[in-house]
């Protein structure tokens, strides 16, 4: 009888042991995932040729794919019939200090291209740089305004587009890293 109880105890201990092993990873804390190559901020600086106040156009989305939409800010109005020298800065501000992703684009400039499209009072936007193959990148550009009025400026960054392309998004293909549109007023 005693031995029966003993063996029963052994069985229970073994079974519990197996259960504990089977369910052992219960409280293991999963590793946090901080997504890399996240772009939180797009910052365009438009400086009038021949001097003047620079206009900063920015879109910032600190929660990435989270529910909060990007916060868009435009520091002021553009002046009509003026050419601006434009440059672009892209950042990952989820990291501290913020990671400058523009540098990565510069390093792999054959694999990237910015596309600028506009409506309204922006006359045209032309590329002001080239990658090592002689194709445009768009890290710097020239923007010329027209009559006073309202305008939209759309910025798209494509990863691995077809290069060279005809300048249209459809022809370029690739993957969209940035697609932001800004409403701008031209005085």
């Amino acid at each position: 009888m005693v031995s029966a109880i003993k063996s029963l105890k052994t069985i229970i201990t073994l079974a519990t042991g197996i259960l504990i092993i089977a369910c052992g990873n219960d409280d293991e804390i999963p590793e946090i995932v901080n997504e890399e190559e996240v772009i939180t901020t797009v910052n365009l600086t438009l400086t009038p040729q021949g001097g003047g106040t620079s206009i900063i156009v920015q879109s910032q989305d600190l929660d990435g794919d989270g529910p909060n939409p990007p916060v868009i800010s435009v520091s002021g109005n553009l002046t009509s019939f003026t050419t601006y020298e434009g440059s672009i800065l892209i950042l990952n501000e989820t990291e501290n200090p913020a990671e400058n992703i523009t540098e990565e684009v510069e390093e792999e400039d054959e694999e990237h291209q910015f596309f600028y499209t506009s409506t309204g009072s922006i006359e045209n936007i032309v590329y002001n740089d080239m990658d090592s193959d002689g194709n445009p990148v768009g890290l710097s550009f020239l923007l010329t305004t027209g009559e006073p009025g309202s305008a939209t400026l759309a910025v798209t960054l494509r990863h691995e587009p077809v290069k060279p392309n005809d300048g249209s998004l459809t022809n370029a293909g690739g993957e969209t890293d940035i697609a932001q549109t800004f409403n701008i007023t031209v005085d």
Partner: peptide, 9 residues
């Protein structure tokens, strides 16, 4: 729709 820097989804 939700908006991100990569556009809307």
């Amino acid at each position: 729709t939700e908006f991100t820097i990569r556009g809307a989804f």
